[in-house]
Design a protein around this nucleic acid. Structure first.
Length: 255
DNA sequence: CGACTTTGACCCGCGC
DNA sequence: GCGCGGGTCAAAGTCG
C-alpha cells in the first residue's frame, strides 16, 4: 500500500537510528572518561593501600555492602549480592511491574530522597519460603527505564516461560549491571547484555553470554575484594547507571 | 474467599 | 538525643 513511501520511511528510520547511535557513542565516550577517572583513583588507592599494612580507609570501603541491608532477614544469606537490571518500559506506565518470569508480591512502596518516582518493594511469592526480594524504581533522568534490584537467590525453579511473561515493550531492552544469579535473564531469547562490574572473579555469567559481554576485567584474587567493593559504589552512581542503560539500550534497538 | 495491592505507621541505623 | 531516610509491617481495600 505505502510502497512509494517505503524508501523515504526507511531513510527516515535510518536517520533516527543514526541519531541514536551518535548519542550512544557520546554517552559511551563519557562513560569511558568517567571509568578512566575512577580507575586512576582506584590505582592510586591500591598503591597507597599496598604500602600500608592496615588503614582506616580500607575498612570504610570494605564495609560498604554492610550498610545496604539495615534490617537483614535471617533467611537471606548475607553473601548474596544485589543484582541490578534495567528494563525499558513505557514512561507513562506507572505500574512499576517488571515481568521477569517470577511471581512477585508487593509489600511496600516508598518515595526516596534522590528520586521523585516511588520505589516499590516486592517479595517472590512463587515458593512459600523463597527469600528473594526486589526493588523497582524508575530512573531519575530517563523515565522510560525501570531499575530492578534483586537480592537473594531463588530456592525453586521457574515455572512459567519468560517469553510468555515479557511484553514487547519490556523485553526490548533488559540490561544486567551486575553478575546476576537469575537464569531467566541469562536466556538468549532477547538481547541481554551483561556487564560484570563487580569484578568478582565469577566468570560463570560471562561464559554463559560470551558474545554479549561488553566489558570484562580480570585481577588477582588479592585485589578483587577491594576492587569489587569500590566498583560496587561506582555502579550506585545514578548518573553513571542511567547513562549506561540509555546508551546500551539505544545500541540494542539500533542494531 | 483467597491472593494481591495500597498506604500509613513503625522500626532501625546513621549522621549531626 | 534527635531527626532523617530506607526498609518492613499490617490493616484495609480490591479483584478475579
Amino acid at each position: 500500500m505505502d510502497a512509494p513511501n517505503s524508501n523515504e520511511e526507511k531513510v527516515e528510520a535510518l536517520q533516527v537510528e543514526l541519531e541514536h547511535l551518535k548519542r550512544a557513542n557520546e554517552a559511551l565516550r563519557l562513560m569511558l572518561e568517567a571509568m578512566s577517572r575512577k580507575c586512576n583513583t582506584l590505582e592510586a588507592y591500591l598503591r597507597e593501600s599496598s604500602s600500608q599494612p592496615t588503614g582506616s580507609r580500607l575498612t570504610r570501603i570494605g564495609s560498604y555492602d554492610e550498610h545496604l541491608n539495615k534490617r537483614p532477614r535471617p533467611e537471606v544469606p548475607s553473601m548474596a549480592k544485589p543484582s541490578q537490571v534495567f528494563v525499558k518500559t513505557d514512561p507513562r506506565d506507572k505500574s512499576l511491574i517488571v515481568k521477569d518470569g517470577f511471581q512477585w508480591r508487593k509489600y511496600g512502596q516508598k518515595v526516596t530522597k534522590d528520586n521523585p518516582s516511588p520505589r516499590a518493594y516486592f517479595r517472590c511469592s512463587m515458593a512459600p519460603g523463597c527469600p528473594v526480594k526486589k526493588k523497582v524504581q524508575r530512573c531519575v533522568e530517563d523515565k522510560s527505564f525501570l531499575l530492578a534490584t534483586y537480592e537473594g537467590q531463588h530456592n525453586h525453579d521457574v515455572q512459567s516461560s519468560p517469553m510468555e511473561s515479557l511484553s514487547s515493550a519490556e523485553s526490548s531492552a533488559m540490561l544486567s549491571t551486575t553478575s546476576s544469579p537469575y537464569r531467566v535473564l541469562s536466556n538468549s531469547f532477547r538481547p541481554t547484555i551483561t556487564l560484570d562490574l563487580t569484578l568478582s572473579g565469577s566468570n560463570v555469567e560471562n561464559s554463559r553470554n560470551p558474545r554479549n559481554l561488553v566489558q570484562e576485567t580480570s585481577c588477582n584474587d588479592h585485589d578483587n575484594k577491594r576492587i569489587e567493593d569500590y566498583v560496587a559504589s561506582l555502579t550506585k552512581d545514578p548518573n553513571f547507571t542511567v547513562a549506561l542503560a540509555a546508551a546500551v539500550a539505544r545500541s540494542i534497538n539500533g542494531l
